[in-house]
Amino acid sequence: MSSGPIIELEGITKTFGTGAAAFQALKGVNMSIQRGDFVAVMGPSGSGKSTTMNILGCLDVPTTGKFRFLGTEVQSLNKDQRSLLRRRYLGFVFQGFNLLARTTAVENVELPLVYRGASKSERHASAMRALDRVGLAPWAHHTPAELSGGQQQRVAIARALVTDPEVLLADEPTGNLDSERSIEIMEFLGELNRQGITILMVTHEPEMADFAKTIVHFKDGLVERVENGNRVRHGKHEGVTA
């Protein structure tokens, strides 16, 4: 893989709707993220941070502008090609955990591997390793309803990790958790980052953003400012440039 930025956004705009009802959510976002960074995206609601995350997660495409992910021009890919990109390189952690109900933890974690065509035994072994990594191996056969919020989020993280992704996208990962569980989760994400995974996280809580190396502030569809270098907790920084 190249030594350049893992993610590059160039003049990204996103317009929803057409004509008089059109709404421009992003007005020209430029940003590049280095491999191994831990980026927190902050901003008031309506500032464009969720839209940016959707584009970064290859779930959505920009109206104009260029999004290079690992050197691939994502804006020119079709739906299935973007699916394959997500399958191969991305892991998702959501605010609402988004586990499949009435499905055991290990089956949830196996899900991404199903689409990779892994064999049953491979899937199970990998899923158990991932659950072990988040400390939930003993709960492998419990359904989400039988797990606490913090545990559910850790299952979700295990599901994101099971494919060894390049980038982990976390959308308000602590939004549904109390502060104690939140800090646990953030410490765990920090640990993963130290192990080499690039993490992009949306949050509106400054305490959670403090775990990141870089904080990107959004306002009115633009990057307002970028804070980096002051993350004492994590030592040296790698740059996000706006």
């Binding site: 997660g57 779930l59 739906k79 299935d80 699916s83 394959l84 990109l85 997500r86 399958r87 191969r88 991305l90 998702f92 988004n98 499949l100 899900l111 991404p112 689409y115 599901r159």
Partner: peptide, 9 residues
């Protein structure tokens, strides 16, 4: 969820 983790249509 399935689509997000990379399921094809």
């Amino acid at each position: 969820i399935r689509l997000a983790i990379g399921a094809l249509a």
